[in-house]
Design a protein around this nucleic acid. Structure first.
Lengths: 232, 232
DNA sequence: GAGTGGTCTAGACCACGTG
DNA sequence: ACGTGGTCTAGACCACTCC
C-alpha cells in the first residue's frame, strides 16, 4: 500500500464504522487527536474527514466535533433519458405533431403560468426494431428562439429540447414513475392488441431560478422497457 | 456577501460555466493563475476547484490542468423503500409466509450460488387504509443468525432484513423498475377485480465484496403508487 | 526544463459550544 | 477559558505532461 496518507486514514476510519467499532451517533476523535494518532498534519486529517463526509459516513458540528451518520440505505442513482433504457433502446423516433397551444387549467397550474401564455406541445412515438414502444408528449413554455425545427426536435431528449434557452448545468429536474392501463387512444398509437401495462415516466424541468420550464410524459410498453437504478 | 473566499471563487467559475463563457472541454486557468487572479493562496483555490469537481462541473488531469465537463443532465436521485412512496405510504404489512427453500436454476444464477444452498423466501402483502396495494417477495441467502422472527421481518425494508449479517454502510444495491399486467395469482392476492397495471420494483443487494445477498420483487397496484426522482 | 496538478507541513486566526 | 471545527497562508517536494 503506497496510497496517500489521507486515503489510509479515511480507510481506517471507514472500516471502523463498517465493523461497528464506531456506531451511529458516536463522536470521532478530534482533528488534533487524529493528527497525533496518525502522526500527520491537520490539513491531511481534514482531507480524510472531508472524504468520509462526502461519502455520507460522518458529519461535523462546528465547536463540537465529528459524528458517525446513520447509513443512507434508500438512496439510488438512476440515469434516465427517453431513448436509453435497460432492455431495448429506442432506435428511432417519429414526430407526430408540434403545436402551439393554450394551456389547460391543470397545465397552467403545473407550469405556474397564466392561462394566456403559449405552450409548445410536442408529440412523438418511439420505435425499437420498427415496433412502436412508447408515446411521448412534452409541454414546453414557449420562448423566443425555441427550436421548432422538426429535425432538431425529433431525436432530442427533453433537456436537449430546452438547451437553447436554459443552461443544462445545475438544471433542476423531477421524475415520477408509475404504471397505468392504456387508454384506447394510446392503444391505437402503440398498436396494442392484447392487455398491456404501460410504464409511465413524467419529467418536469426547472430553470436555475426554480421556475418550471416544461413537463413531459412518456408512456412505455411495459414489456419493452425497464429502468435501472443503483447505489452510489 | 461575507461568504468564505473559496465559495466566492467557486461561484465565479461556476457562473462562467453556466453562462457558457467557459465551454465543455475548455481549459481552466491554472491553480497558480487563479491564485494571482483572486489574490489568495493555493490551498484556497484548490478548495474551490474541489467543490466544482464534486459538483461535476470540472475535472482535472495531473500535469495538464482543469477542464470543463459536459453537463450530466440524465442523472436523478431516487429514495426508495418498499413502504414509503409518493402518493400513498404503506401503513401496514402482513407476513404471508417465511420458507426455507432450494433455489430454482434462475434464482441460483441470480444469486451466484450452488443449487444446494438454502434460501429464505419471504412473502408479504402491503396495505394502505386496509386496502392491499402491493405483493412483495424476498429471496435471501440463508446465513446463521438470520432473523426469522416474524415480528422483525414483517415491517422491515429489504436492507433492514439483512442488516444483522451485513453492514448497511456502502452496501451495493440495484433497482429495476418495470410495468406488468398481473397474473391471476397476484390479482387474487391484491383483490383486483378490474383490469389493472402493476408497477414492479426489483431490488438486488450485494455485500461489500460484491457478492449477492438477496433479491426482492414488489408488485404495486399502479393506481396507488408512484416513485419520485429528482436531480438533487 | 518549465508548467501542471497531487500531497503534505506547520503554523495562524476565527466562530462556535461547553464548562 | 478551553476545545472544537472552519478558514487561510506560504511554503515544500513529487509525478506527470509537453516541448
Amino acid at each position: 500500500m503506497n496510497s496517500p496518507v489521507y486515503i489510509k486514514i479515511a480507510n481506517g476510519i471507514r472500516s471502523k464504522i463498517e465493523t461497528e467499532e464506531l456506531m451511529p451517533g458516536d463522536n470521532l476523535p478530534s482533528e488534533a487527536a487524529l493528527c497525533k494518532e496518525y502522526g500527520t498534519s491537520r490539513m491531511t486529517v481534514r482531507k480524510s474527514l472531508g472524504i468520509l463526509t462526502n461519502e455520507n459516513y460522518i458529519y461535523s458540528i462546528p465547536g463540537k466535533g465529528y459524528f458517525v451518520k446513520k447509513p443512507e440505505y434508500n438512496k439510488y442513482i438512476i440515469y434516465y433519458d427517453e431513448m436509453t433504457n435497460l432492455i431495448n433502446n429506442v432506435d428511432n423516433a417519429k414526430l407526430l405533431e408540434v403545436d402551439i397551444i393554450n394551456p389547460s387549467k391543470r397545465l397552467s397550474d403545473t407550469l405556474q403560468i397564466n392561462m394566456n401564455k403559449k405552450i409548445v406541445a410536442i408529440r412523438r412515438v418511439f420505435y425499437t426494431d420498427e415496433i412502436p414502444v412508447a408515446y411521448d408528449i412534452k409541454y414546453i413554455l414557449y420562448q423566443k428562439g425555441m427550436p421548432i425545427v422538426e429535425k432538431e426536435i425529433e431525436q432530442a431528449t427533453f433537456p436537449e429540447m430546452v438547451s437553447r434557452n436554459t443552461t443544462l448545468y445545475g438544471m433542476k429536474k423531477e421524475l415520477m414513475i408509475s404504471a397505468k392501463v392504456p387508454k384506447e387512444r394510446t392503444k391505437k398509437l402503440l398498436n396494442l392488441l392484447e392487455e398491456q401495462a404501460l410504464l409511465v415516466v413524467e419529467q418536469k424541468l426547472y430553470d436555475n431560478n426554480d421556475k418550471p420550464i416544461g413537463v413531459g410524459i412518456t408512456y412505455y410498453r411495459g414489456d419493452y422497457i425497464k429502468l435501472q437504478g443503483m447505489s452510489q
